[in-house]
Simulated scan of single mutants.
Amino acid sequence: MSRFDGYVLRQLLVLFGFFLLVLVGVLWISRSVSLFDRLISGGQSAMVFLEFTALSLPTLIRTVMPMAAFGAAVYATNRLSRDSELTVMLATGSSPLRLARPMLYFGVVTALMMAVLTTYLRPASIQQLGLREAEVTRDLTAQLLNEGSFMHPTSGVTFYIGKIDPDGTLHDVFLSDRRDQLRPITYTAARAFLVSTDDQLSLVMVQGMAMRYNSKLKSLSTTLFADFSYDITSLASARSGGKRNLRGVPTTELFSRSGRAALLATGNYDTGEITEELHERLAWIVIVITVPLVGYAAMMMGGFSRFGLWPQALTAFAILLLLEGLRGLATSVVLNHPQLWWLLYLPAGIGLTFSALMLRGSGRPLRLYLHSTRHTRRNA
C-alpha cells in the first residue's frame, strides 16, 4: 500500500465512523422512543430498556452501514478534489482507476465488518432478543403492577389499579375480559392481591362485583362477592410462544442441508424464505464493497469545478437509489422463486459495472486540457 493509499484510507475510515455514528444515533432515537414507552409503561426497569437497545444495535448498524460507507466515499472524494489533491495525482500520471485502489481497500475493510455483523452478531442478537421478549411477556407481575393507568396485557383484556400499597395490596381494581365477545365480563374490587405459585398466577379480589353481559339475551347479570380468585396465567401463555424468528437462525444452520431440512420440517417456513434469508446475509457483504466504488466513480465523472461536485454527488445518490430498488425487487422474486437466488447479488454486479464504466470515462477532460496546454506551449 502506497503512502497516498494509506492517507486516503485513513480519511475514509474516520469519515465512515462519523457517518455511522450519526446515522445509528438518528435511527436509534426514532425507534427507542416507542420502545421506551412500551417497556416502562409495562412496568419494566430502565436496565431492561438498555438491554433491548443493545440487542437491537447490530440490526441498526447493518441497516445504515452501506449508507455510511457511501457517504464517506463521496465526502472524501469531494474534499480531495476541493483541495486539488486529486488534480495533482492525475497530473502526475495516475489514472482514476489507480486512484480507486484505496476505495477498494476501504470496501474490503467494511465488508469484513459486515461479514461478522450479518452472519454472526445480528442473528445472535435477534435470537437473544426473542428470548428476552418472551421472558418480559411472561412477567405479568411487572406489567400489572402499574397504578393509575389502563393496561392491556393481551388483546381483549383491560386492567386498572387505582393505588398500590408498599405491602403489595392493590386498591380500586378494574378487570375487563372481552375475549369472549358473546359474554364479556367485568370485575371490580375494593382490594386485590397477586398470588403466584409454581406455575400459576392468580388475582385474588376482595369485596367486589362481577358483571356478565349476555349479548344474545341482551341481559346484564351482577354478582357480589366477598372474595374471588381469577386465574391470569392464561394471559401470559396467550402472549408467549410463536414460531422461531428466521432472522435469528445461525448462519451455519442455514448453510447446512440438515439445518434447512429441520426448518422446513417445522412447517413455519418455505424454501423461498430460507433461501432468501441465507443469500441476503451474503449479499449485504458484497454491497458494502460496491457502494464506495459507485460513489467515488460518480464523483470522478466530468471536469473539475470551483463550484464543487454536486451534480456528480446527485448522480451517485441516484445510482444508489436504483441499486436499493433492485435489491428490494430481487428479494420479492427470490421469495417466490428460490432457484433465482443469484438475483440478490445482481445489484452489486450492476453497481460494479457502473463503476467500471464511469472510471473508464472519468479524468478525460483533465487529460485533454493538459494535452492541449502542452501542445500550445510547443507551438509558442
Rank of each mutant, 00 (worst) to 15 (best):
T222Q: 15
G259F: 07
G259R: 02
L282Y: 14
S237Q: 10
R191W: 06
F228H: 15
M300G: 12
G328S: 05
Y269E: 08
L254E: 12
L194S: 04
G248I: 13
I232L: 14
S196M: 08
E324S: 14
G267Q: 11
T233D: 07
G328A: 10
Y296M: 13
M300P: 09
A190P: 01
W310L: 15
V333R: 05
E324T: 12
Y230P: 04
K243L: 09
V286G: 11
A262M: 15
R212A: 11
E253S: 11
S332W: 08
L264T: 06
S240Y: 12
S215I: 06
A236D: 01
N268T: 09
T222Y: 03
A313G: 12
G259N: 04
S258E: 15
A265P: 01
L335T: 00
S229H: 03
L314V: 14
T315A: 15
T290R: 02
G303R: 03
T266F: 10
G272D: 11
F317H: 02
T290H: 06
V288N: 02
D199W: 00
R191K: 15
I232E: 08
A226S: 11
W310A: 11
A330R: 01
E276I: 01
P311S: 07
H279R: 01
I274E: 06
A262V: 06
G308K: 10
S258N: 13
E276R: 14
D227N: 14
L203I: 04
L323C: 07
F225W: 12
D227Y: 12
S237T: 13
A283W: 07
M301W: 15
L321P: 01
T223P: 02
G302D: 10
F307S: 15
L326M: 15
G302V: 04
E253Y: 05
A316M: 06
L335C: 03
S258K: 07
V291K: 02
A238L: 09
S258W: 13
D231H: 11
L309C: 02
Q200E: 15
D231W: 12
L326N: 08
W310D: 03
W310R: 12
E273D: 07
F307A: 15
A261R: 11
R260E: 07
I285S: 04
Q207C: 00
V291A: 07
A226K: 15
M209L: 06
T315V: 14
A265T: 04
A262K: 14
